[in-house]
Nucleic acid binder design. Structure first.
Lengths: 205, 205
DNA sequence: ATTATTGGAGAGTGCTACTGTCCAATGTCA
DNA sequence: TGACATTGGACAGTAGCACTCTCCAATAAT
């Protein structure tokens, strides 16, 4: 398969594929001469993955790059696999957060302790900053509301882990790409469920 | 309060506030002369809301504009309020989705029917497109997984509605801004819960 | 009277994700 | 064999977004 065929299979313009190759998002094809190379199914999948991650998942190409690096270097043991997957997920858009208030920090620490979660500093910092943001915007998150969200998150997480296959490389793909791609799904479901919970069909126009 | 004071109160540069004024994200202050106007607390809140929505919630300024328009025009009756809030939420980033496969469409229809949800065409279309995206990326969402997500979404939605105050304007703010700002919170909680569900502290570095 | 600030307007910036153009080397088909 | 299309590689150009800068005459503060 040459570039034009790859472009046709994926629906992505040749110019864009060349760009992805240059940026290292796509491994080079196998050269058959000085000005020719062939691509295979793995390239098709990779392009589709990139498109899905930048599309509905909304990642930047830089974030996609990190995710792909993690997927290409899966730990051989099953132990530590989820840790690696987590690191890839957590780093996906590591915006440096401002300090985050002390009050928010304490609430997060209490939540983590109450639920018996482990205290990942990156994630808890981020969470504290997000709660701070909401508070500053005049829409504070009540402890009860936060608890409900946390319970739902646990339910989701259990469901996520139930789908993980045995093979490490597949497991990585499933956890990392699966989580990133179902993030928007979860948010859409939330809106649908809000309509349902608010009394349903009558409200919708 | 003049611009410089507003800037100091919110931590946003004067130039940016001028920009927001120009773009209509911030209502003009009350002019006291030809080259002077005063701003009040509502302006401070508005700036903070805009920053929160573009920050952790990740909305574009165009999306923020739509959300603010909805907040500034709350329906007087409690009936239809949630409908209006929903419309604002749903339109927040109305990327026009490609057709979305027939299979995905049917799965969504079945899910909506099974759970007794109402069939908002915009949301169900979006959901179908997202499932399609995941499938094309090689990370299909199993029916069981989707069901788990839907159940969690219902739980979240019930919690969301429990926090809604009586006053329509406040209710709008709470539902619309609250949902948008807790979207990222929910996703962060999901990652924390995944670490917890995967065996916890041992996995984390 | 002097200095700082204001609203308003327009131009300029930096970043991201492409997109277009050009090239000589190579492949494809007549 | 020749005409034409395609390829990899390099670089410049573009569009959109969210600011940011500069300028201005008219105030406001001291």
């Amino acid at each position: 398969m040459r570039v034009s065929a790859l472009a046709e299979r994926t629906g992505v313009p040749v110019a864009t594929i060349k760009y992805y190759l240059r940026e290292g998002l796509l491994p080079p094809g196998v050269p058959t001469s000085r000005t020719q190379a062939v691509y295979d199914e793995s390239h098709v999948e990779r392009v589709r993955l990139v498109r899905a991650l930048t599309g509905s998942a909304g990642l930047s190409l830089a974030a996609v790059h990190e995710v792909l690096a993690a997927l290409d270097d899966p730990p051989s043991s099953r132990h530590g696999l989820l840790g690696a997957a987590q690191r890839a997920l957590v780093a996906d858009e590591a915006q440096q957060e401002p300090p985050a208030g002390v009050a928010a920090r304490r609430r997060v620490d209490e939540l983590v302790a109450a639920r018996g979660w482990c205290d990942d500093p990156v994630l808890t910092d981020r969470l504290a900053a997000q709660l701070d943001d909401a508070e500053k915007a005049g829409v504070p998150v009540s402890p009860e509301h936060l608890t409900v969200l946390a319970q739902a998150a646990e339910q989701v997480a259990r469901g996520d882990l139930a789908t993980v296959p045995e093979v490490p490389a597949d497991a990585m793909r499933q956890v990392v790409a699966g989580t990133l791609l179902t993030d928007p799904v979860l948010l859409t479901l939330r809106r649908l469920a809000q309509q349902w919970a608010s009394g349903g069909a009558g409200e919708v126009r």
